[in-house]
Design a protein around this nucleic acid. Structure first.
Length: 477
RNA sequence: UCCUUCUUAGCUCAGCUGGUUAGAGCACAUGACUGUUAAUCAUGGGGUCCCUGGUUCGAGCCCAGGAGAGGGAGCCA
């Protein structure tokens, strides 16, 4: 007989039907009641064991963490905490779990402790909810773009291109690093390496994405990305997943519209399909914030915050307007910023971004038209000669979740800018071909998937929204 | 990388001014009970006080160095 998933069982009208259910024991109370979970939902099904007619040796093996298979009848629960329960007629232990050694206990654990046992934390309510939400968001990303006829493009993970400047890269080689072959000058001879040249893990699929957009029109990537920055924060990972759409015949406004539509679409999808999980996470956050002083708590619950995002337009302002707002802000005048805002041209600090999003507008903000000197070479230059068609989307609690731009499609201006920024043209010759052969206005952005999961789950540390986080000095599992 | 806080039982933590045998709650084990909901009650086992060195009659506590973790900053998604 096939097993039924617990999520489905809990929604079934009990008519004494015989069912099979398999899962992992969360708790075993009173030698009689098993709370069983199979990952389909955070809710457990209660298995009732006839302990008087069950061998004691078998009862002893029903421990927290054990994997069991139960055949029984589904009945309306006689107890109060649940609507249905399963009266066991047969119970098999599929996998024992030594209660003395199993680290998950029927009690609250700290997120830091669970991070150390990331291979087992999937079995907790919090991480069950997080990773079901993550799954829903990933699926919704694909559904959103597919409905719009974007082509899913797999850009390379190993690349020889290191001219992007998006971040420090992980070197890829199969040399014996203690004894690499040297050339006549004593330098490492990459001609003898696997690819015959130095290679790295990708920091972005954007440049290759642009190539594809110049043929398919609209494309997106969704894959792993690697940055070897020594970043130790709650918002950075060395290995993370990035979504990068690229649209031909699109300007910055189209780009902002796409990003805003996409964020709203995937958040709504998660709310609709993971309602219970998000409610659970919302309550979890509420409980966690009770530990904090009143003025540090969120004004909205997680659920309210997500719904607020769906029903309000993101605030769109230019960098220049943002600087004016910050300059004139009471916060700046009272010198409450660590870095005071006095002049146009400086990069915004996180405290400034947080002020704009969390204090001034109290909603997601899209900042556009940054000074060209603080942005990448490929961004389209405005006629003022000082700013570029860049956009950053800032989210409360997360900061920058999206970074994008309209691309510089004009060959002359692009190569001039590259030369100014000391980017060797010959290394990106293939990229420049798009501008040589049938160039057109186009735009795209990069969305850090884990930052999205962070926002939707209400978690505060990015290491808790990816199954096995890779950060400086940490690559377990 | 910088600033800052922390590291004591399986987990979460307490540990006074440096003083004799290092504690609690939960978890776990044993027993009782048996429609429980983090069950309850009783009993019990469990410690490299992060590591190394130093000061001292005496260090979990003070000093130096190191490791790991949390929070903040920078870099960014």
């Amino acid at each position: 007989m096939q097993r039924t998933r617990i999520k489905q069982l809990l929604a079934t009208t009990p008519t004494n039907q015989t069912i099979v259910v398999k899962g992992w024991v969360r708790t075993f109370r009173n030698n009689q009641f098993i709370a069983l979970n199979d990952g389909s939902t955070n809710n457990n099904i209660q298995i009732v064991v006839d302990f008087a007619n069950t061998p004691e040796a078998l009862l002893k093996r029903i421990t927290t963490g054990a994997c069991i298979s139960v055949t029984g009848t589904l009945i309306a629960s006689q107890g109060k905490g649940q609507s249905v329960e399963v009266v066991a007629t047969a119970l098999d232990i599929l996998g024992d779990s030594d209660a003395e050694k199993f680290p998950l206990q029927p009690k609250k654990h700290s997120l830091e402790f669970l991070r150390e046992i990331a291979h087992l934390r999937f079995r907790t309510n919090t991480f069950g909810a997080i990773f079901r939400v993550r799954n829903a968001l990933a699926f919704a990303v694909h559904q959103f773009f597919q409905q719009k006829n974007f082509v899913y493009m797999h850009t390379p993970i190993i690349t020889s291109n290191d001219a992007e400047g998006a971040g420090e890269m992980f070197h890829v080689t199969n040399f014996d690093i203690k004894n690499p072959p040297l050339d006549e000058h004593g330098a490492i001879d990459y001609k003898q390496d696997f690819f015959g040249k130095p290679t790295n893990l990708t920091v972005s699929g954007q440049l290759e994405g642009e190539l594809a957009a110049m043929a398919f029109g609209d494309i997106y990537t969704f894959g792993p990305t690697f940055r070897a920055e020594n970043s130790n924060t709650t918002r950075h990972l060395a290995e993370f997943w990035m979504i990068e759409p690229e649209m031909a015949f699109a300007d910055l406004n189209d780009n902002m519209d796409l990003a805003e539509d996409m964020l709203k679409y995937v958040i709504k999808y998660a709310l609709d399909t993971c309602t219970e999980d998000i409610e659970f996470l919302s309550n979890r956050l509420l409980e966690e914030e009770k530990q904090k002083p009143q003025n540090e708590r969120s004004e909205l619950t997680l659920l309210e915050k997500l719904n607020f995002c769906l029903t309000n337009n993101f605030e769109r302002i230019t960098y220049t307007q943002a600087i004016d707002i910050l300059k004139e802000s009471p916060h700046n005048k009272k010198k409450k910023f660590q870095y005071l805002v006095n002049e146009w041209g400086v990069d915004l600090q996180s405290e400034h971004e947080r002020y704009l999003v969390e204090k001034h507008f109290k909603k997601p903000v899209i900042l556009t038209d940054y000074p060209k000197n603080i942005k990448a070479f490929y961004m389209r230059q405005n006629d003022d000669g000082t700013t570029v068609r860049a956009m950053d989307i800032l989210f409360p609690g997360i900061g920058e979740i999206v970074g994008g731009s309209q691309r510089e499609e004009r060959y002359d201006l692009l190569t001039k800018r590259m030369t100014e920024m000391n980017i060797p043209l010959h290394e990106l010759d293939w990229y420049l071909d798009t501008r040589r052969f049938g160039t057109c206005p186009h735009a795209g952005f990069g969305l850090g998937f884990e930052r999205l999961v962070l926002f939707v789950s209400g978690m505060t540390n990015i290491r808790d929204v990816i199954p096995f986080p890779r950060t400086p000095k940490n690559c377990e599992f």
